[in-house]
Each structure stands twice: as C-alpha cells, then as structure tokens.
Amino acid sequence: MSLTKETKSDIIKQFGGSEQNTGQAEVQIAIFSRRIRELTEHLRAHPKDNHTRHGLLKLVGKRKKLLAYLNKTDIERYRKVLADLDLRK
C-alpha cells in the first residue's frame, strides 16, 4: 500500500527538480496525493477498513494545510501544482 522507492523518486524528480529536493511543498503535496489515490482505491475494495480511513483523512488534512501554505506564499506555484496534479479548488 505504500509507495515504492522508484515511484517516490520519480515524483521527487518531477516536482522538485532533483533527488535531494524532498522538502519542497510541491513534492510533499504530490507524494500525499499519490498516497491518497492509492488509499482511496483500497477503501473502495475494503469499505469497512476504518484504520485506513483514519489514515486517509489525516493525509487529506496534511495536504490541505500544505496547499493553503502554498496559496498564501506563492499563488503561481499553487496554481501550477493544482493543474499538474489535476486537483480542484
């Protein structure tokens, strides 16, 4: 259920520019979005898995906070992340 090393490194390269740039808000939002997508698929198959549901809600909250931060600090980067990840706001 977790991301593989290769998948995570691809996301980091795409949104961070280099392998070392893991703390950038765009990278973290992209990783959270990928995990949210995977957990959503898991919950469709296992609707009574409340532990996973709780983890999913925590991830959604973290992503929401990062998106709010990005919106407040740099609106252009925020809009680019929304477009790249196909998120709606």
Rank of each mutant, 00 (worst) to 15 (best):
S2L: 00
S2R: 08
L3F: 03
L3R: 02
L3S: 09
L3P: 12
S9I: 06
D10E: 11
I11W: 00
I12V: 15
K13R: 13
K13I: 12
K13E: 13
Q14D: 11
F15D: 14
G16A: 07
G17H: 03
G17S: 06
S18T: 14
S18E: 10
E19Y: 08
Q20H: 10
Q20F: 15
N21A: 15
T22I: 15
T22R: 08
G23I: 12
A25W: 00
A25K: 12
E26C: 14
E26Q: 11
E26R: 09
E26V: 10
E26F: 02
V27N: 05
V27R: 02
V27S: 07
Q28N: 12
Q28Y: 02
I29Y: 01
A30E: 07
A30Q: 08
A30M: 07
A30S: 07
I31F: 01
F32M: 12
S33W: 09
S33T: 15
S33C: 13
S33R: 11
R34C: 12
R35A: 03
R35T: 04
R35S: 06
R37C: 09
R37A: 15
R37M: 10
R37S: 15
E38D: 11
E38H: 05
H42A: 01
L43K: 02
L43Q: 03
R44Q: 13
R44A: 13
R44P: 00
R44N: 13
A45C: 06
H46Y: 04
H46V: 03
P47D: 02
D49V: 05
D49K: 03
D49P: 06
N50D: 07
H51F: 05
H51I: 07
T52M: 12
T52Q: 08
R53I: 04
R53E: 12
H54E: 10
H54F: 12
H54S: 10
L56M: 08
L56T: 00
L57Y: 01
L57C: 07
L57Q: 09
K58I: 14
L59G: 06
L59R: 07
G61E: 02
G61W: 00
G61R: 01
G61Q: 02
K62D: 14
K62C: 06
R63V: 00
R63C: 06
R63S: 11
K64Y: 11
K64N: 15
K64G: 14
K64F: 11
K65P: 00
K65A: 15
K65D: 15
K65Q: 14
L66F: 04
L67I: 04
L67D: 00
L67H: 01
L67R: 01
L67T: 00
L70S: 03
L70H: 02
N71S: 05
N71E: 08
K72A: 11
T73Q: 07
T73S: 06
D74F: 09
I75C: 02
I75R: 15
I75N: 03
E76I: 13
E76T: 13
E76Y: 09
K80P: 05
K80F: 04
V81T: 05
D84P: 00
D84F: 01
L85W: 01
D86K: 02
D86Y: 01
L87G: 08
L87K: 01
R88I: 09
R88Q: 14
K89M: 04
